[in-house]
Design a protein around this nucleic acid. Structure first.
Lengths: 246, 246
DNA sequence: GTCTATAGTGCGATAGAC
DNA sequence: GTCTATCGCACTATAGAC
């Protein structure tokens, strides 16, 4: 039997991430149902979740095509097959529907990133893991992340602030790892704030410009390898050893 | 008197770019007036341009706050001080207003990038110039580019296609330079399509996340230097000489 | 729980006075 | 050229039948 403790464990790949994360639309909707039971008039979980799955799936599809504001609830009703009445028994206003989706996206991001980050790992491995996990997560939940990215404007002031905080938090994590690496001499002493922003921009490109990568037949594994090597060429100190992984 | 021909000329900086480009709101509106005279009922140039400046300025401000679809023409009327009638004497529908802004943005981008790109320059200098000019341009016209980026969804199918083509064109230019550099042995033989996409993502971050860089007091010159060194560390071949410029 | 019908609001767009 | 007044329509949200 092997000791499953240390950082020498094999790098996570996309398929095992997908199985581990259990991020199906249904799992997410069960959570949303329990969190918003005061706004949801339906009391039976099976019925509520069935409708929520339908509503979120359809909302993401229509909104990501033509924008949340442009999508009328009549559009949503028609495309989902639910009547206006059925829709309003799952949320109390169109704005609340928007908030539900945004809020859930943020919660999952935070949870998944934390779950996969092992503080005992050395900085270079942490950085690689974080890049991989972020890409895998946004690959599995692409419509969610695209929606969150594009529809921030439609949130009220308070929700908007949470959205900004969420973005800065992710960069903060990258920044921390990079400073740790600089102190250990693995990374070159270059501006870690700008670099973290750059890494973030490269990660966001994966789900914001998904059409481009699909068209070019670039897989998420391809892109993960590319980002890691692109970023490492820029930040690794000259003395650092070559690629040791994979 | 000096010969102003060759590529040894000093690298362009932001202030001289700004003076050279003549991209004031008014200059742009004069062009728009002449291009859309069939849709614009006002015949006197001075009056039409005065109103167009007001309308575009206000539209960009309101839309970039809460989205073009969410901004009603009554909002626009109130914020600009023009009546509904005055608005409709400058465009024939809300959608046309959207198209005017998008179209003009694309035209200026193409023109400015071409004007500043000297085909006789060596690839490394071309790449640096292109990064700088792109950043300077999007700095001067930030609201325009942010608007174009966020409101693509609201365009009709034909206009949307032009928008996608415009994005791919910019990447194509970077891709061409990179291949030229690889053939010359200046750049390493890494995937030039992925790399061009990465450069594009870093350039877009400058105007899409403008709030972040403002808050951190990063100037456009700071960011240009950072992007150039970040990208060059990743793509320069090991044999290439160090920084020779500035 | 889910439907249809409808109330009430605010939109884009236009006509006609000035 | 610019204004105000107004048309017709589509929207969000709700009420009441089943």
């Amino acid at each position: 039997m092997m000791e499953a403790t240390r950082s020498t464990a094999k790098t996570i790949d996309f398929d095992s991430f997908r199985q581990m994360a259990l991020l199906s639309m249904e799992d997410i909707c069960v959570e949303i149902f329990h969190e918003n039971q005061q706004s949801i008039k339906i009391k039976k979980e099976t019925v509520a979740v069935r409708n929520l799955v339908n509503i979120f799936y359809t909302t993401l599809r229509l909104s990501n095509e033509k924008g949340f504001q442009t999508m009328s609830l009549r559009d949503l009703s028609g495309a989902s097959g639910l009547s206006m009445g059925a829709l309003y028994s799952c949320f109390s206003s169109k704005d609340e529907l928007l908030e539900m989706i945004q809020k859930q996206g943020r919660r999952i991001t935070r949870k998944v990133l934390f779950d996969h980050l092992d503080q005992k790992d050395p900085p270079r491995k942490k950085m690689r893991t974080l890049i991989r996990v972020h890409l895998y997560l946004t690959e599995v939940m692409q419509p969610w992340f695209y929606f969150a990215y594009m529809e921030t404007k439609n949130l009220d002031k308070a929700q908007r602030k949470r959205s900004v905080e969420s973005e800065l938090f992710t960069e903060q994590v990258f920044n921390g790892i990079q400073q740790e690496g600089q102190n250990a001499g693995v990374y070159r002493p270059i501006d870690s704030v700008l670099t973290s922003g750059a890494v973030n921009a490269l990660l966001q490109d994966w789900y914001v410009k998904r059409w481009k990568y699909s068209r070019r037949k670039v897989s998420v594994e391809d892109y993960a390898r590319f980002v890691i090597s692109f970023v490492e060429s820029a930040i690794l100190s000259e003395a650092a050893p070559g690629d040791t992984e994979k």
